[in-house]
């Protein structure tokens, strides 16, 4: 793949990362608000929401490297009735606008909690629709390795997996910033991390296992498919076998590390700086695994016909 082709993994992975992060963040927010009050959770979610916005912007900029004429990219949004690409662009832009609004509200307007909550959930829905549209684009009869609902499921699972680990990283970063700023509510932030990391790690584990099972199903399906499907399988388990293996090694090492760190943290009943390194490394490994998975997704497809 060249840069032009790498633009697709960059865009899809970053979009799924952004949507998944917002979902995990809003679930964490709901939990923390009930337990620690709105004032604190509004502060805690500020930086993560900004990070989601930056991710979406980078993803959209990255997607333009895939286009021959980026200046005309908006024309692709004109066929909403018939094109999943147009719908993807529509939902992505809508998601971006909602995230921009949400970020502005989070950083500039105190209060308005209900509006922020609604905007967050609206963003999650739009983001989810964007991922759905994005995955539907690949359901092409000419690409038998892609043309399956499993592609949709795979994309959604990636969003969930990346979201769970990314929120962990963002919460640790936010904690560090509060430590540096000598914030009075650092102890409460630690409690939030302590309680949310357990279920975030649980989500990561479940989605990782689901990913593995999904890939097994895909392998069986490709094996039973036509010649192009079997060619794709040969590429996956032949030329790209090292990457295929490395992907799952990285994935389960990452979620394993994340789970272990969350477990130790929960048992020790204390948070210190040392939690950051395992969480960063776990997220890095999971991200590498998912980018490799997406690379394999693009690299192993075989087109039938013209």
């Amino acid at each position: 793949m060249n840069v032009r082709e790498w633009a697709l993994p960059v865009y899809t992975i970053l979009m799924q990362l952004a949507v998944g992060t917002l979902l995990s963040l809003w679930l964490t927010r709901a939990f923390a608000t009930r337990r620690y009050g709105r004032s604190l959770t509004e502060h805690v979610t500020r930086i993560p929401v900004l990070a989601v916005l930056i991710t979406v912007i980078v993803a959209i900029i990255g997607s333009h490297f895939h286009l021959s004429r980026p200046i005309l990219s908006m024309l692709a949004a004109l066929n909403l009735r018939s094109s999943w690409l147009s719908r993807e662009i529509f939902f992505t832009i809508s998601f971006l606008l909602v995230i921009i609004s949400l970020t502005c509200l989070q950083w500039l307007v105190p209060g308005l909690d209900r509006l922020k909550t609604v905007l967050g959930w609206l963003g999650i829905v739009l983001g989810g629709l964007s991922i759905y549209s994005m995955s539907k684009i690949y359901l092409l009869p000419t690409h038998s390795s892609w043309n399956s609902p499993l592609t949709v499921v795979s994309f959604l699972l990636t969003a969930l997996l990346l979201g769970a680990t990314a929120v962990a990283v963002l919460l640790v970063m936010e904690l560090k910033i509060s430590e540096v700023a000598d914030d009075a509510e650092t102890a409460v932030r630690r409690q939030i991390i302590q309680h949310t990391f357990v279920w975030l790690a649980g989500v990561a584990w479940v989605t990782a296992v689901a990913h593995l099972l999904l890939n097994l199903v895909i392998i069986v399906r490709l094996n039973q498919g036509d010649i192009s499907a079997q060619t794709s399988l040969m590429l996956m388990l032949g030329l790209y076998q090292p990457l295929f293996g490395m992907r799952y090694i990285a994935l389960f090492t990452g979620v394993g590390w994340f789970g272990l760190a969350a477990f130790v943290l929960y048992r020790q009943r204390k948070v210190n700086y040392e939690i950051s390194n395992p969480i960063y490394l776990a997220c890095l490994l999971v991200l590498i695994a998912e980018i490799m998975g997406r690379f394999l997704f693009y690299a192993t497809h075989v087109r039938v016909g013209i």
Binding site: L14, V169, L170, N277, Y280, C283, L284, L287
Partner: peptide, 13 residues
């Protein structure tokens, strides 16, 4: 201390 967190995504790519 924030750099490792910020560099995760580019490093992964």
């Amino acid at each position: 201390y924030l750099l490792p967190g910020l560099l995760i995504v580019p490093t992964a790519f």
